[in-house]
Computed example of a mutant assay.
Amino acid sequence: MEYNIIVAPNLEVLATEVAGFIPMGWKLKGGIVEHLNGFAQQLIRHPGDLKRLQRRQEPSKQNKQRRTRWIE
């Protein structure tokens, strides 16, 4: 299991940075924590989630290859 903590000076920047990690298989864990330097959010990812994410992306690549073939 992997953990990641995002720290940002305000909530808008925190939301932007966290949104970049969501497509990579990360999920939110807990709530937003306020501290002296701003705000923080913890993310979590299981190794199996990454494998499932890769499997979902592979069929879309195959579909694109089928569309580019010439019809004889």
Rank of each mutant, 00 (worst) to 15 (best):
W26Y: 13
G25I: 05
F21E: 06
K27F: 00
V18T: 07
N4T: 02
N63C: 06
Q57T: 08
T16F: 04
R52G: 09
Q54H: 11
W70L: 14
I71Y: 01
A15F: 07
K64V: 12
R69A: 08
L36V: 13
E17N: 13
Q42L: 13
H46Y: 09
V13S: 14
E17F: 05
K29E: 15
V33W: 06
I22H: 06
P9Y: 00
R52V: 09
L14G: 04
E72N: 05
G20M: 01
Q54I: 10
R52C: 03
L14F: 05
G20N: 04
H35P: 00
R56Q: 14
G30Q: 05
Q41C: 01
L28W: 01
P9L: 03
V13K: 13
I22Q: 08
N63Q: 15
F21S: 03
E2V: 04
R67Y: 09
R55T: 10
W26N: 04
G30A: 05
E12A: 14
R67F: 09
K51Y: 04
I5R: 01
D49Q: 08
R45W: 07
G20E: 06
G31V: 10
L50Q: 15
N10C: 09
P59H: 07
R69P: 00
W70I: 14
L28Q: 14
E72D: 06
W70D: 12
D49G: 09
G25S: 05
I22L: 09
L11Y: 13
Q41M: 03
G20T: 04
R45M: 12
M24F: 14
T16V: 02
E58T: 12
Q57I: 11
L28C: 08
I5Y: 06
I5N: 00
L43A: 02
V33L: 12
L14R: 02
P9Q: 09
I5T: 13
G30R: 03
A40I: 04
K64D: 15
F21L: 03
L14W: 02
L36P: 00
E34W: 11
L50E: 15
Q57A: 15
V18S: 02
I44W: 02
E2T: 10
R66A: 06
I6P: 01
R52E: 14
N4Q: 12
K61Q: 11
N4I: 00
H46E: 10
A8C: 06
Q41N: 01
Q54W: 06
I6G: 03
L43G: 04
L28G: 11
A15W: 05
E72R: 12
G25M: 03
R55G: 07
I6E: 10
P47S: 01
Q62H: 05
P59G: 00
Q42A: 15
G48H: 10
A19D: 10
A15Y: 06
I44N: 00
I32T: 14
R66E: 12
I71W: 03
R69C: 02
N4V: 00
E58G: 02
I22F: 06
H46Q: 09
I32Q: 03
E12P: 08
L50V: 13
I71H: 02
R55Q: 14
A8L: 08
I44A: 07
L28S: 09
R69V: 08
N63G: 05
G48E: 14
I71V: 09
M1R: 13
K51N: 06
H35G: 08
F21A: 03
I71S: 07
Q62T: 13
A8V: 07
H46I: 05
N4W: 11
K51M: 05
